[in-house]
Simulated scan of single mutants.
Amino acid sequence: MAARFPDELTCDMAETYHALDWRALGLPLAATLAAGLRENSRTRMALAGSVSTVDTLLLGAAVDALHLLVWAKTKDGQKGRSRPEPVVNRLLGVPSPRQATGFSCAADYETARARILGEGWRQAAGGLPSSAAAAAPSPEGEGLGGRLKGER
């Protein structure tokens, strides 16, 4: 704890126990005091890899639920548009999925599509690579399902 997060431990010891030089306390007492730090102390949160306290995350979840209820009553909510961004995602540092992406050519689109969908869907669809699958006509003719317009 002291080796990995010395600044956090120093700050927590000063705040909680008013011990500005916790190293002068001796190892047994310093270890006992460090073990007694609150769950939301800087040191314990750093050890757990937490970026927000549980209380803050619960408050964010409550705000998200309220935003969702209010949004559902709007015209956008009834049509499923402009859903509010979750506050909890911002607290956790999750990147926003709402990033518009444009493509300058079909190859860029196919590359992004393959990355998003993965390669497994191509084998299930017949094993053609994306460029060959897009360019290859069906064996039965043109159109959807290999049927021409007007045929049954």
Rank of each mutant, 00 (worst) to 15 (best):
A46E: 02
G49F: 03
A48P: 01
T56I: 01
D76S: 15
T74E: 10
L68V: 06
S52G: 07
L57H: 04
A61E: 13
K73I: 00
K75H: 11
H67V: 00
T74M: 09
L66H: 07
W71P: 01
D76Y: 12
S52Y: 03
V54N: 05
A61K: 13
V51H: 06
K73W: 08
L68G: 14
H67G: 05
V51F: 06
L47M: 13
V70Y: 02
D55C: 05
V54P: 02
A46T: 03
S52V: 05
A72P: 02
R42S: 08
K75L: 12
V70C: 09
L69A: 13
T74R: 06
T74D: 09
W71Q: 09
T43Q: 02
S52W: 04
A65K: 11
K75Q: 14
A72E: 14
V70W: 04
L57P: 02
T74S: 15
R44V: 11
G49A: 07
E39A: 12
V63D: 08
T74Q: 07
D64L: 09
L58H: 11
E39R: 09
L66V: 08
S52R: 12
R42K: 07
L47V: 10
K75D: 14
T43N: 02
L47N: 00
G60I: 02
S41Q: 03
R42Y: 02
H67N: 15
T74K: 04
A48W: 03
E39H: 08
A48I: 01
T74Y: 12
V51P: 00
A61Q: 14
T43D: 02
D55H: 05
K75F: 09
T74F: 11
L69W: 02
A72M: 09
L69I: 00
V51E: 01
T56F: 05
M45S: 01
R42H: 05
K73E: 15
R44T: 10
D76E: 15
S50C: 07
V54M: 08
L66G: 01
A48L: 13
K73Y: 06
T56K: 14
T74C: 10
E39N: 08
G60A: 15
K75V: 13
T53D: 04
T43G: 03
A72T: 03
N40F: 00
A48N: 10
M45H: 03
L68W: 06
L58V: 12
T56N: 05
A72W: 07
T43M: 07
L57A: 10
L59N: 09
R42T: 01
T53W: 06
A65W: 00
V51M: 08
L57E: 11
